[in-house]
Design a protein around this nucleic acid. Sequence first.
RNA 1: GGUCCUGUGGCCGAGUGGCUAGGCAAAGCUCUGCAAAAGCUUCUACACCAGUUCGAAUCUGGUCGGGACCUCCA
Length: 496
Amino acid sequence: MALKIYNSYTRQKEIFETITPGHAGMYVCGPTVSGESHLGHARPYITFDVVYRYLQHLGYKVRYVRNITDAGHFEEEGKEAEDKVGKKALLEKLEPMELVQKYTNLFHWAFKKFNCLEPSIEPTATGHIVEQINMIEKIIEEGYAYVVNGSVYFDVKKYAKNHDYGKLSGRVIDELLSTTRELEGQDEKKDTADFALWKNAAPEHIMRWKSPWGEGFPGWHIECSAMATKYLGPSFDIHGGGMDLLFPHHESEIAQSTICNHRAPVKYWMHNNMITINGKKMGKSYNNVIKLTELFSGSHPLLTQPFHPMTVRFFILQSHYRSPLDFSNEALIASEKAFKRLWEAFETLKKLEPDKSETAKDEELESKVVNWLNELDEFMNDDFSTPKVIANLFELAPIINSLKEGLILPGNISSNTLLLMKEKFAFYLEDILGLQNISEADNAMLQGIMGLLIDIRKEAKAKKDFATSDKIRKQLTEIGISIKDEKDGGMSWTVD
RNA sequence: GGUCCUGUGGCCGAGUGGCUAGGCAAAGCUCUGCAAAAGCUUCUACACCAGUUCGAAUCUGGUCGGGACCUCCA
């Protein structure tokens, strides 16, 4: 059973076969570190973290490249050319690189909390100015770019004559070329559809580099082409990013790289859908951003409580990456409860002892369980259907709890199946979905204290001193620890 | 305006033409000193209108609504 990936370029699911057997190259558009990461950023990096994990599981040696855009893009239409990073730095009276460092650190901090694996290479745009300039020179040599007043533009019209510009994003080239909009700063371009490879820097522009065309800074699209080519080669397997990047960013990347390397750069294009908030895309320009720090601390008007990064990760994986996902405080609370329940079932499962029965006494149950377990692989192979994986794990939760409670007898499921269940549950939950326990109970001192309190409470209960046992339970509940009486007279506790 | 996507039960969210997705919430029951948890059960929806089909949430056309991109964006 082979992995199938939905390829945005062909708009269909395709069997995944890497260019180099045994190896997979994946490039994902990283953050622009001119501001704090927000909930919207969580989706692509969690999505592609799961892709990365799963490809490794399939046995590929994966090189995962995710850039940091620290050079700042320019805003070219309707505004003066100005570097976003440079502008904000002036406002905050910080060095541009200081600002970039600050937000890079914050980004790393947040995604460590999300339990995202670190990419193999995390190149910065400013660290690859030379590569970008080289690439631009190559494109000029090939005759697909022109220089105007110290800026360099890609000639889309010429490219479109013998290439399929617009295929990825579904644009019609004639319409792009015949755009009637008259915007400032367009006069340098031969055509409105052309895009900048290099921009001449205005005097107030802080971030600037010397180039064959004068002092300036790179265009937005060229960094990804340059770095992907450098670390993954002229053709690589997967390029990922948000759907909002389809046009013009990825379309332009294809054009640049194709001219430069004489071949299509990417075999499988993957795009995650957006997170919406009240039906609107979350983004700086919409003024509806929930920063990750606000999400984790609960300090945002839309939130009634803090949310653990794992709750957010779980929430995101409960929907398919290509579907839009609407955020709400209520939806996150639902995910938090669901996740806690699932994780408790997992903890319970780990403690279950396999029965000696080699054959199951309840064949119907046995086959249902085996089927649910086997489907997990199918679901992942079907374009990473994490919601279905999670749904099947939830199917297993009542089975696990019933085994623990004795509502299902141990022998009803064969020992092999129970072992398989333990193995798959841990594998999918932890290794593939990348989820972690969110309980804060893993503290030796707390465990010691709780052990003592539980002993006292057990003694009280044995003496039918319910006043004492209830007092212990009640007061612990008030400070956020809940005690549950088990069927066999034991007690368990959890930190809320 | 152009291109594309989308509309599922109280809420979130899967759905490959025929078989209960799943979660949260709610209700009832079981268990329990009480509670919590857990288990069982119930709530069976696919914007609207036509069409194709033995059969459509799933395909086609139309209507209405929502969204994305076309400008920085995950």
